Amino acid sequence: MNQAIEYSQVEQAHLYVGSRRKNVTAYLIFIRQGIALIRLGKHEYTLTQGTGFWLPFDCLHALTVLPGCRFDKVQFSSRLHQPLCEQAGFITISPLLLALLDELRHTHASPQSNDSPENHLLAVVADQAVQFSPSTRQQCPALPSTLQSVLGEQLQGRTTIASEQVAPVETALGISIKELTACLLIREAQKLSRSGRKAEQIAKDLKCQLDHLQTLAQTLIGREF
């Protein structure tokens, strides 16, 4: 990082499957559109439109971003003097923080310097970050409590969602269960590919037809295995 605090906008055209790693910067992400998934330990959290999430320094995590997702990201360097929160989790996006992020979207095109409008806005964001109280009590704040475990099981590929649960889950996520399942399949395929497996073995391991796998891969990650 060149600056102590940096803002960026991310528009993900294809499925992004991040590796499990510790981040060298603390950062918050705010979902403008679509879905992102963050794995912390054994649990995976679903970020939907309007959701904010905080990841402190040296937090071991894996980030998955589904196609079409747009989000704001603010990174904080260890050079900052503010005592930033050391716990990961969902954060409340206050009206002030949302206004700051909205303004940053408009000023981001200008060069960043110590006296730039963007830097002044980021300093206020840093003040807000000191007050964060992250929570991991829910896996997806957009879902009612009765459906939290249902989504969790779906993300782990352990169960099929009952027909009466499909509509509320799809409404909360903004995508169909079929689309989510396809993304999760290609995510697992990409992990296997990174470990050195060939396409034929990946299809066999995931118990799907090779042609189907390659078609999904071409659509979701822009290439075949």
Rank of each mutant, 00 (worst) to 15 (best):
G89P: 04
N114K: 08
P111E: 10
Q201C: 03
T25R: 14
H106W: 14
K42V: 09
G52M: 08
Q49H: 06
Q139Y: 13
L37N: 07
R187H: 01
Q128C: 15
H14I: 00
L180W: 04
S113A: 05
E118I: 01
G152M: 10
E103V: 05
S19R: 10
D72G: 02
V74R: 10
V74T: 10
D115S: 14
T215P: 00
E170G: 03
E11R: 14
F76R: 03
R70D: 09
I31V: 12
A217G: 13
S94E: 03
Q9C: 07
C85A: 12
R21Y: 09
S145Q: 15
C85G: 03
A109M: 04
L121E: 03
Q214C: 05
E179S: 11
E44Y: 07
T171Y: 11
S135A: 11
L155S: 02
A167G: 04
L84C: 01
I186C: 05
A199M: 08
S135C: 09
R187F: 00
T136H: 07
R70I: 08
L66M: 07
K198H: 06
G157A: 01
V17E: 03
I202Q: 01
S149F: 14
T215E: 13
G50S: 06
L143Q: 05
M1E: 03
L37G: 04
K198P: 00
Q75F: 14
L28S: 09
L216W: 13
Q190F: 09
L96W: 04
W54D: 10
L213T: 04
A88V: 00
V150E: 09
I31W: 07
F76P: 01
V124F: 13
G196E: 07
S94W: 03
L155C: 02
K204G: 13
E153S: 14
T46E: 08
L213D: 08
G152W: 12
R79L: 14
Q138N: 04
I175G: 04
C140R: 02
K178W: 11
L213E: 09
G52H: 09
P67E: 12
H106Q: 15
Q33D: 13
I38K: 11
V130L: 14
A99E: 10
C59F: 11
L192W: 03
A26F: 09
S193E: 06
C140E: 06
R197D: 12
Q75I: 10
L55E: 08
G34C: 01
I175S: 06
P95K: 12
Q9E: 11
L63K: 08
A189C: 01
R197S: 13
Q75D: 15
P56I: 11
